[in-house]
C-alpha cells in the first residue's frame, strides 16, 4: 500500500534523516515511535503527502514524488483519512458540517453528505441525536471531539488512516476505545499511527522506531519494521 525508499529530509544544513525506507500494507496496523524531535512527525508529513518528497514514495501504486502540491492535495483528500492529537475540528462549523467537509468537497450533494455523516457519527457515538449534530465542536468533551474527528476521517471511506498521537488527550477508557477502533479498522485499511505510548504495541502489527544515528550523519535513523504479532 505504502512503499517509501531513500527518503531524505533536511532543514537547511541539518539532516533529520536520510536514506530511510518504510512500508505499510493494506489491512495492517503500523506504529511509528521515537523520542521527541526524532523525525516522527516529519515522516508522517511525507507519508501523508503534505510535504514534498525527496526520495521514492509510492502509495497505492501512485508515485507521489512526481505530483505537485495540488495533485498531492487531491490525492490525500481522496485516499487518506486523518486523526489528530488536537482533533482539528473547525470551530466555525457544526459537528455535522465538520464531518461532511470531505464529502461535499468531493462533489456529493449536501443532503446525501448529511445522511452519510449521521450514519458514521451514530456508529461511533450511539447517543448522538439531532441536537448533537448541530452543536459546535467546542461544546463537546475531548473524547467526543476525537470520536467526531475519527468520523470525519472515515466518512469518505479512505484506504489509509494516518493518526498523530490520537489518544494523547483522552482518558483511559476513551483511549482504549479508540485503539480498539483503529485495530478494527486495520482489518480493511492501512493504519499508520505516530505515538509515544508503548500500549499501542499490543494493538499494532508492525513497529518502526526512530533512534539516534550513531554515525552522526543524520539526527536519527528509522529502524524496522518489527513484527508485533504472530501471523
Amino acid at each position: 500500500m505504502i512503499q517509501a525508499d531513500n527518503l531524505v529530509k533536511k532543514y537547511g544544513t541539518e539532516v533529520v534523516f536520510e536514506n530511510i525506507s518504510f512500508e505499510a500494507l493494506q489491512g495492517s496496523f503500523t506504529i511509528i515511535q521515537g523520542k521527541s524531535g526524532s523525525g516522527k512527525t516529519t515522516l508522517l508529513n511525507i507519508l501523508a503527502t503534505i510535504d514534498e518528497v525527496d526520495g521514492i514514495l509510492k502509495i497505492d501504486g501512485v508515485s507521489i514524488e512526481k505530483l505537485n502540491e495540488h495533485q498531492r492535495a487531491k490525492f490525500r483528500a481522496k485516499n487518506i483519512g486523518f486523526i489528530f492529537q488536537s482533533y482539528a475540528l473547525i470551530p466555525e462549523f457544526s459537528i455535522i458540517e465538520n464531518c461532511t467537509i470531505p464529502l461535499i468537497m468531493d462533489g456529493m450533494s449536501k443532503q446525501d453528505a448529511i445522511i452519510q455523516a449521521k450514519k458514521v457519527i451514530t456508529k461511533l457515538i450511539p447517543e448522538a441525536d439531532e441536537q448533537f449534530f448541530t452543536k459546535n465542536p467546542t461544546q463537546l468533551s475531548g473524547g467526543q471531539q476525537q470520536r467526531v474527528s475519527i468520523a470525519r476521517a472515515l466518512i469518505h471511506d479512505p484506504k489509509i488512516i494516518i493518526a498523530d498521537e490520537p489518544t494523547a488527550n483522552l482518558d483511559e477508557v476513551a483511549s482504549k476505545e479508540v485503539k480498539q477502533w483503529l485495530k478494527e479498522l486495520s482489518k480493511e485499511k492501512c493504519i499508520i499511527v505516530v505515538t509515544h505510548e508503548k500500549e499501542y504495541q499490543k494493538y499494532a502489527d508492525f513497529l518502526y522506531e526512530f533512534v539516534d544515528d550513531t554515525t552522526k550523519k543524520a539526527k536519527s535513523v528509522l529502524k524496522g519494521p518489527v513484527c508485533l504479532k504472530d501471523f
Binding site: 490525500r76 487518506i80 486523518f82 466555525e92 468537497m105
Partner: peptide, 12 residues
C-alpha cells in the same frame, strides 16, 4: 488554523 486543517485534509 482552520486553513491548516483543510490544507492537511487535502483542500487548498
Amino acid at each position: 488554523y482552520q486553513l491548516s486543517v483543510l490544507h492537511t485534509l487535502g483542500f487548498i
